[in-house]
Write a protein that binds this DNA or RNA. Structure first.
Length: 271
DNA sequence: AAGAATGTCAACCGCGTAAGA
DNA sequence: CTCTTACGCGGTTGACATTCT
């Protein structure tokens, strides 16, 4: 029992759009709008296309205010910042960038920005920290001015970073750069930071508090993924890294001017 | 020069959900 | 309230372009 198709696939054309089809769609939408019904629109416009296909073509390509390519540094910064906070909410991210579509932003992230981050991470984890700041994407995190999260203050510190710091929730295999940055743990029901902050009593680390308090963030998942095997190394690695403030780079982060840093955990397996 | 590998991006797929009957 | 329909979204695919060997 599959999902009912939105149109008769045998009767509609698929694949790349021809200039004639583009023109037909453009002129129809400019004259009449979509009519509030993309499903019936193709027929009215004389197109043998699925309504969804028409909608996509208009929104992602034919709209007059669309810009393609040539992402600026400012746009990079917005994308990274919002991705770090929201995850893959491409439509939301695109809405903050004039003339950009969710598809464009998504493609740009997957093909360019993510790779730049990986390259930066690889350079730092191999000790090659001579990577220029200009070549990096905008910083992911900004530390509090007086960050001093050793152990006792770790939980408070971790909660102060929330929601900027991204911690994977349930994982059994290797992490990707997406896991590294995407805030999968933002939902209250599986957010280890919220649990850590609540459980912190000054004698435990945020990681152990989080691990014990967040059922979906088990020691097994955490330890196995972090490679440390102690079940609490992941968050500790992040927190410990901040104690190296002032240095150009630590094992687990790359320090940048202005209090920014990239969290780089060499024990993570970036794939 | 040619084939392989990799990158890019337009388009498709199918799910979640809002709206209306 | 339930069901149907259409929209919007995120993930994925595949064709074409580019780079590498």
């Amino acid at each position: 029992m599959g999902r009912t198709p939105c149109c008769d696939r045998a009767a509609v054309k698929r694949g790349p759009w021809s200039p004639e089809e583009d023109e037909a769609l453009r002129s129809y939408v400019q004259r009449h709008g979509s009519g509030g019904n993309w499903i019936s629109m193709p027929k009215k416009a004389g197109l043998k296309r699925c309504g969804k296909s028409c909608r996509l073509r208009w929104l992602n390509y034919l709209r007059p205010d669309i810009r393609h390519g040539g992402f600026t540094d400012d746009e990079d910064a917005v994308i990274l910042s919002l991705y770090t906070q929201l995850g893959s909410k491409w439509s939301v991210i695109a809405s903050q960038l004039e003339g950009r579509t969710d598809n464009d932003v998504k493609n740009y992230w997957n093909t360019k920005l993510k790779k730049r981050l990986l390259a930066a991470a690889a350079g730092a984890t191999t000790g090659d920290v001579a990577v220029s700041v200009r070549s990096l994407p905008p910083p992911v995190l900004r530390l509090p001015a007086a960050a001093a999260p050793a152990t006792t203050a770790a939980a408070t510190y971790a909660s102060s970073l929330f929601p900027s710091l991204a911690i994977p929730t349930v994982k059994t295999e290797t992490y990707t750069i997406d896991d590294f940055l995407a805030p999968a743990a933002f939902r209250d029901d599986d957010n280890p930071f919220a649990a850590a902050a609540a459980a912190a009593d000054g004698s435990t680390t945020s990681a152990s508090a989080a691990s014990s308090a967040a059922s979906t963030w088990s020691a097994t998942d955490n330890g196995a993924a972090a490679g440390g095997g102690d079940g609490s190394s992941f968050l500790l690695d992040f927190c410990a890294g901040s104690s190296g403030l002032g240095g150009a780079a630590a094992d687990d982060h790359l320090q940048l001017p202005g209090g920014y840093y990239y969290p780089l955990d060499p024990s993570l397996s970036l794939v």
